[in-house]
Design a protein around this nucleic acid. Structure first.
Lengths: 144, 144
DNA sequence: TTGCTCCTCACGTCACGTGAGGTGGC
DNA sequence: TTGCTCCTCACGTCACGTGAGGTGGC
């Protein structure tokens, strides 16, 4: 193992790291939510990088907390993918107009995700308030 | 329609009121999550009360926002069911010891639900913070 | 009577879970 | 070489969606 070897992970390592199963990762690849690991011969092991782990963790977090379908998630992630492209292209782009356009697009995508998070948070708060309300009433009756 | 007639709703009315489908309501009845509408002859229409609507709305809210399986939800709802029993029995119970026991049980159930809500809310907040953080960075680069 | 909603099968779908049988890499 | 994890089908499951064909109630 030379020092130049890229640190590569196997599917089980990735699954454990993000708290899911190999089957889920393969399924996401199958439906095109995750890239195909291009260049992998059929039957050979998939391999992943630390960046892949981060990306998958993000995907699962959005899915879990927003409760959306994988199809809706795909739409949201095209944005995510676009932001990855932006990060790759920004350093090599000197045209200030183009830089600005890329960054503003990134802002739009982030704001879309934040809007969904805000709605969820508001619904959760209402639920918490209702439960707290009932709790107070039970406490009041206990105090009698 | 006499004034004494109990206001009764059909499955489509209930579905529309809570934002779901008749199929979902039938499925929940099928797996025992909702009571069987005992006494309904096969083939006859199901009918519901305003209380049924409230209960279903609560069920769907917990499922949606907590992202749990119907099996886990059933466990949580046995508590809910127990609380319904408590509300029915409390008025007819004079024994102060029994009253206290029933109310304390209600508290335990509410606290269990609140704990789940709190965990979810914390996770959502972390997600929001991460997204906000990225947003700030994009804004900073735009300001250059 | 005409519409509309309801009923009960029953098969389809989404997002995976779970073996079955076989190959790959430390 | 021995284990372990990986691979690819492929069928099972959970939580419903979606007709198919028929009956019920304002």
């Amino acid at each position: 193992v030379s020092a130049a070897t890229v640190e590569t992970l196997r599917i089980g390592d990735v699954a454990r790291a993000v708290g899911t199963t190999p089957r889920t990762i393969r399924y996401y690849e199958e439906i095109g939510l995750l890239p195909d690991s291009t260049g992998r011969p059929a039957g050979r092991h998939r391999c992943y990088t630390a960046a892949d782990v981060d990306r998958l963790r993000e995907i699962l977090r959005l899915k879990e907390l927003l409760g959306i379908t994988l199809e809706e998630l795909r739409t949201l992630l095209e944005a995510e993918e676009a932001r990855a492209v932006i990060r790759r292209e920004l350093p090599v782009t000197d045209d200030p107009g183009e830089r600005r356009a890329l960054l503003e697009q990134a802002l739009v995508h982030l704001d879309r995700q934040l809007a969904l998070v805000d709605r969820r948070a508001a619904e959760l708060e209402r639920l918490r308030a209702d439960l707290d309300d009932r709790r107070q009433r039970v406490l009041a009756r206990l105090a009698e």
